[in-house]
């Protein structure tokens, strides 16, 4: 009969009756082989279903972290590049603004100068116009005075002719008229 079957029936038999025992702590028997095999089975199960998947997970995490670090480094570099670009752009913009302000200042100064010159010219023109007007007015006034003098002369002449009869009083009269005329502004 198969020794395992015998063993099994013996085991069953030993359930009922008090079976063999040993008192020696250094008792070697088939336990050794059973332990060997069961431990190897345990190792296999753990390796196959626990350690290897777990190590795969750990490796994938390691990879993930490494990737993340590399990505972070890349992003940091990009950010640095962008920062530098912005800095340069800002510098450029500032310079541009400066130049625009300078140009504007120059323009405004020029314009102010122009305006001043124009104003001066205008003033000159107005002054010339005013002077010409004054001249004209004076000429006209002189002409008027002249006309008045002529009128008065005629009036004097008329008065003299009217008073020819009184020759004595003639001289006094002329004198009086001349005095009157002399008091008038010409």
């Amino acid at each position: 009969m198969n020794p395992f079957v015998i063993g099994f029936s013996n085991t069953i038999a030993s359930v009922a009756a008090a079976g063999p025992t040993t008192n020696s702590p250094l008792h070697f028997d088939y336990t050794y082989f059973v332990q060997l095999i069961s431990f190897l089975i345990l190792v296999w199960i753990l390796a196959r279903y626990a350690w290897k998947p777990l190590m795969k997970i750990m490796e994938s995490r390691r990879q993930f972290i490494a990737d993340n670090l590399a990505q972070a480094e890349q992003e940091r570099k990009d950010a640095e590049k962008i920062r530098l670009e912005y800095q340069q752009e800002m510098l450029k913009a500032r310079q541009e603004a400066q130049s625009i302000i300078e140009k504007a200042t120059k323009n405004s100064e020029k314009r102010a100068e122009e305006i001043l010159i124009e104003a001066r010219k205008e003033t000159e023109k107005i002054k010339q116009g005013a002077l010409a007007d004054i001249e004209r007015e004076r000429d006209r006034a002189i002409a008027d005075v002249k006309a008045q003098v002529i009128d008065m002369s005629i009036a004097v002449a008329e008065k003299i002719i009217q008073h020819q009869l009184d020759m004595r009083g003639q001289e006094a009269l002329i004198e009086q008229f001349i005095q009157e005329v002399g008091d008038r502004p010409c």
Binding site: G7, N10, P20, D29, V34
Partner: peptide
């Protein structure tokens, strides 16, 4: 001891 085959 359990008996297993010719051993224990």
């Amino acid at each position: 001891l359990w008996v297993l085959g010719n051993g224990t």
